[in-house]
């Protein structure tokens, strides 16, 4: 856990809706919170170096790009195998997120989550098969949950 000071938080709040589309976006954000452009960029760089910011990017909306089949694939992997399994799955280029989460027995035995995105059902099945192949015997069972409706989606919110 990283502690943000008041200026970091102000910077996060000022940028969480996105950077302004102007030639000098960091200067515009800095001016809005009363710091210099150089300080704003230095603070963002520090948050990037510390890992708090994973990337600064133009974040594509998979759905708008035609990826209508967004599957949360969930795998039952023994605790002792989770590091090997997670590393193998995370290395697949089409997996956008790969997390270990706690299982809740008996209803939810799955401990490894990997998100896949496809344009049609057949491609989605193919990707699930590729994940299964990467896991081999490490998987003791799995389910794939497709999102049928996006009810709410916003970026990080700090207030």
């Amino acid at each position: 856990m990283i502690d943000f000071d008041a200026v970091d938080r102000a910077l996060i709040v000022a940028t969480q809706e996105g950077l302004p589309l102007v030639p000098q976006p960091y200067a515009a954000v800095a001016e809005a919170i009363g710091i210099s452009a150089a300080e704003a960029m230095a603070r963002l760089r520090r948050m990037q170096d510390s890992g708090a910011i994973r990337r600064i990017a133009a974040v594509p909306n998979h759905y708008a790009l035609g990826y209508r089949f967004n599957g949360m694939t969930c795998w039952d992997v023994a605790d002792g195998d989770i590091a090997a399994a997670g590393t193998a799955v995370a290395a697949l280029p089409f997996v956008s997120h790969c997390y270990q989460r706690p299982r809740h027995l008996p209803d939810w035995p799955y401990s490894l989550f990997a998100m896949i995105h496809a344009k049609d059902a057949e491609s989605a099945e193919g990707l699930v098969a590729e994940v299964a192949a990467a896991l081999g015997d490490l998987s003791r069972g799995h389910v794939v949950l497709f999102s049928t409706r996006i009810l709410k989606k916003t970026g990080l919110r700090l207030s």
Partner: peptide, 15 residues
Amino acid sequence: GVISRIGAVFRPHRC
């Protein structure tokens, strides 16, 4: 809506 946002992506749990 092709780009949902242009900005920082925060790592979960870090803030």
